[in-house]
Design a protein around this nucleic acid. Structure first.
Length: 480
RNA sequence: GGCUGCGUGGCAGAGGGGUUAUGCAGCGGCCUGCAAAGCCGUGGACGCCGGUUCAAAUCCGACCGCAGCCUCCA
């Protein structure tokens, strides 16, 4: 039985599909005016893990993740770059897809874009105006009337009066109530605009998600997710809009992932403490290290980004790949040890407890290592380890190739924003051929019991980050 | 100020009323020419103060500390 923490009820609850056997899930995706940072990577990976597990349980999943491709920041950035909005957003959509592939994130089934969803958005706004949930303000913008929605605040635990009392809310005279939020913004000169019954303009941020999610998944669907910071006001407003427009319950389960932090602070654009996926990829031997790092903590916990923690992830992954080394990559071995799979499932069924699931992988790895003398048993276990790893999107590479990949020279990404020169400077690396030459010389020396020379060669390789291992009569190497 | 959530061993990170998390690092041993890898064994923990209980790191309350939201943000 799969239990998921529901922000709406602040408790774990069983997932009961609206349509038996099927799950519709919508995740708030990126606003594409810049490269994805680690926080975005966390959303992508967290929900990738969710979808993988739902599918492993046999659900037919429809996974929708939107792209916000028009908003104030996009417009500002395009003007600043003197390029069109389309070329700006296309560039960063492509970059996002690259990052996604690098992190082994399976693409969503649908990726609706705001600019391509105008009819749905306009029709939802029209419905809201029709039933008095929205009105046209004195400046021509269309606003949602929060006081018309009695359960406003049910997701975030906020009450309207308290919010009104807050000092931080700007008084916008066009609104009837400071809490009201914009559904349709009239276009200023030089701004992109779409025709609507309320004049040329563009949608507010919240309405696009209501329109796209219900368009793709129906008025009432199973799971809606996103980062914690979207809880209020974004998701609260989505509920208000959607339920007022359709008269139906919007979403059964709300999932929110925790932040990536830097020095115990939220990673964010405004604090300028963010690291892009592509720059962090340059600091690790393989992007899989980043993926492992992200799933090594629970999706709702804070995750502190540092090079040390990334290195730890590398060590842990190295242990798993070391256990897999020498066993075939594609192994459809039968699962002899149902116990491990059960443990793994139990962990994942408990609100996607990936750290606990990973601990099962380490148990399997130990069992493989224990059974080195029984190749059949070990190979079967290796197949199982690969299979379970696959359910988390890890351990699908050739183990030996992974272990031979070079680890970039450690740079302090905490204080210096990594430029290309910094990160790539590592690589005066020896070629495989050169390494094998050295190993051959060392083997000769060892055969002559010339330990001094043999150790000298090994030490020199070590200085280059090459670690030798003498395993059952032959010598292999890896980078560490 | 209001509302969330969190404080676990040297570090990372699960768990969660009585019984080993796991990984890295440490210590002892086995293996090895010596190493590395691996295996076996091992030390070390639940912010503080009260309460409930036969029993609390785990439940309840106060306190302290941290993060987040209340403004665009994954």
């Amino acid at each position: 039985m799969l239990e998921i923490y529901n922000t709406l009820t602040r408790s774990k609850q069983e997932l009961i599909p609206i349509t038996p056997g099927k799950i519709g899930i919508y995740v708030c995706g990126m606003t594409v005016y810049d490269y994805c940072h680690l926080g975005h990577a966390r959303v992508m990976i967290a929900f990738d893990v969710v979808v993988r597990h739902l599918r492993a349980l046999g659900y037919e999943v429809t996974y929708v993740r939107n792209i916000t491709d028009v908003d104030d920041k996009i417009i500002a950035r395009a003007q600043q770059n003197t390029e069109s909005i389309d070329s700006l957003t296309q560039q960063f959509i492509d970059a996002m897809h690259e990052d996604e592939r690098a992190l082994a994130v399976i693409a969503p089934d649908q990726e609706p874009r705001a600019t391509q969803s105008m009819p749905q958005i306009i029709s939802m706004i029209a419905k809201l105006i029709e039933n008095n949930s929205a009105y046209i303000g004195s400046n021509g913008d269309v606003f949602y009337a929060v006081n018309q929605f009695s359960s406003y605040g049910k997701l975030s635990g906020k009450r309207i009066e308290e919010l009104r009392a807050g000092e931080r809310i700007d008084i916008d005279s066009a609104k009837r109530d400071p809490m009201d939020f914009v559904l349709w913004k009239s276009a200023k000169p030089d701004e992109p605009a779409w025709e609507s019954p309320w004049g040329n303009g563009r949608p507010g941020w919240h309405i696009e998600c209501s329109a796209m999610s219900t368009d793709c998944l129906g008025n009432h669907f199973d799971i809606h997710g996103g980062g914690m910071d979207l809880q209020f006001p974004h998701h609260e407003n989505e509920i208000a809009q959607s339920e007022a427009a359709t008269g139906e319950t919007f979403v059964n389960l709300w999932m929110h992932n925790g932040f990536v932090r830097v020095d115990e602070e939220k990673m964010s654009k405004s604090l300028d403490n963010f690291f892009t996926v592509r720059e962090v990829i340059k600091t690790v031997r393989d992007p899989e290290v980043i993926r492992f790092f992200i799933i090594s903590s629970h999706y709702r916990s804070p995750l502190n980004y540092s090079q040390d923690n990334l290195n730890e992830a590398d060590s842990a992954l190295t242990r798993l790949y070391t256990a897999l080394r020498g066993y075939p990559t594609s192994d459809k071995a039968p699962e002899r040890q149902a116990g491990y799979t059960n443990q793994f499932n139990d962990a994942m069924n408990d609100d996607f407890n990936t750290p606990s699931a990973l601990s099962v992988l380490f148990e399997v790895a130990r069992e493989i290592n224990r059974n080195q003398s029984k190749p059949d048993v070990a190979a079967t276990l290796a197949g199982q380890l690969r299979q379970l790893g696959g359910r988390l999107g890890i351990l699908q590479q050739n183990a030996d190739q992974f272990l031979k990949k070079s680890i970039p020279r450690q740079t302090d990404t905490q204080t210096t924003s990594n430029t290309d020169e910094n990160a790539v400077a590592s690589s005066s690396v020896l070629s495989d051929d050169e390494i094998n030459q050295c190993i051959k010389q060392r083997t000769d020396a060892r055969n002559n019991k010339n330990w001094e020379l043999a150790d000298k060669i090994r030490d020199e390789l070590m200085e280059q980050g090459i670690i030798l291992e003498d395993i059952s009569g032959s010598t292999t190497w890896r980078r560490g």
